[in-house]
């Protein structure tokens, strides 16, 4: 495919924009799905009047958010304040491009795909810090600082948990990892998957790790002062993060398209993703929120040792093989 517009800089641009679009659309679905699931858990119906099964509710919400006034507080550092949501969103949209959607194909098939997926979304931390700091609001600042600490802390167990898959597959190129995937990866990577899942939840600032937002403590944390479409971009980043992490987890730990050939495999992959998204939603609506110190304890004292244990197990397995 060399020379095609789908490679190189133009390719990156196209796939990046495409990823953004996919994330935006998936977010609409994701929000609707979360509201439906949460409603069900809480003995409610969720959205039901706008469109079939209320499917258009989130579209309507999005239209509303687009039309809302874009407020910049007078205390805010305006340029930083305005650009922060994009800095949060863009890396997440970029991360989607390396996900192996179908057999032998990922939009951006690079040899460092695994690292790319882990490293690029981390740039969001800077956006969160910027948003929190530039809002000129103590709550937002606290939220931004909490977010930074949390996301950086959870990078470590998450990276380590992915490392075990990389070790087993022997490649950093996602497409190759998928080709090397066998069903017994699942039991072997059990602990790793748990660590990946939990730290992904934390990475996405979702409950029970939604400490940077912490509605009941920090009102809305780092995006307390945002409104309209900028606020919507934060929400899209959150759901985008959830979807991206679920896609990646479904691929690496649950096998993705490796279960079946062709488009059928892609369908299974997407189904597994929905299952993971649902699990994240379910956890959020079941558990209370942790405190900052408990969150840190979990990252450093529980998840990191567990991830290291997983790597050790894989190491032993590889040595034995």
């Amino acid at each position: 495919m060399s020379g095609s517009v789908f490679t190189g800089y133009t390719g990156g641009l196209i796939w990046g924009l495409g990823g953004g679009l996919v994330i935006a659309i998936a977010t609409l679905f994701g929000v609707w799905w979360e509201r439906k699931v949460a409603g069900r858990i809480q003995m409610r119906l969720g959205p039901q009047t706008t469109g079939p099964f209320g499917l258009l509710q989130t579209v309507a919400d999005m239209v509303k958010l687009l039309l809302k006034e874009d407020i910049t507080p007078t205390q805010a550092d305006a340029p930083v304040f305005r650009v922060a949501p994009l800095i949060v969103f863009v890396p997440i949209a970029m991360a989607v491009t390396v996900i192996p959607f179908a057999a032998g194909w990922a939009p951006l098939d690079t040899s460092v795909g695994m690292l790319f997926f882990l490293a690029v979304p981390s740039v969001s931390v800077i956006g969160i810090l910027m948003a929190g700091w530039s809002s000129g609001n103590s709550y937002a600042t606290l939220g931004g600082l909490r977010g930074a600490a949390q996301m950086i802390s959870y990078e470590l167990p998450r990276t380590l948990s992915v490392l075990s898959v990389v070790l087993l597959a022997g490649s950093l190129r996602p497409v190759e990892v998928m080709e090397a995937w066998r069903w017994w990866f699942i039991p072997l990577n059990g602990i790793g998957f748990l660590v990946y899942f939990i730290s992904s939840v934390a990475e996405c600032n979702r409950g029970p790790f939604d400490i940077p937002e912490a509605e009941s403590e920090l009102v809305a944390g780092y995006f307390a002062d945002y409104s309209g479409i900028r606020w919507a971009i934060f929400m899209m980043s959150e759901y985008g993060g959830v979807i991206a992490a679920s896609l990646f987890g479904a691929a690496l730990f649950l096998g993705g398209w490796a279960w079946a050939p062709g488009l059928f495999g892609t369908a299974i992959f997407l189904l597994l993703t929905v299952v993971l998204v649902t699990a994240m939603i379910w956890i959020k609506w079941t558990f209370p929120r942790m405190r900052m110190d408990q969150l840190m304890n979990t990252a450093w004292k529980v998840l990191t040792p567990m991830a290291l244990l997983q790597i050790a197990i894989i190491g032993v397995v590889i040595a034995w093989l």
């Binding site: 858990i41 809480q42 003995m43 379910w282 609506w285 079941t286």
Partner: peptide, 21 residues
């Protein structure tokens, strides 16, 4: 305790919504 929580919310979800239309 975490599993219990999931089980209870699942039970409530299975019991069906109480919302009035």
């Amino acid at each position: 305790s975490l599993a219990t929580g999931i089980r209870i919310t699942a039970g409530r979800a299975a019991a069906g919504p109480k919302t009035l239309r």
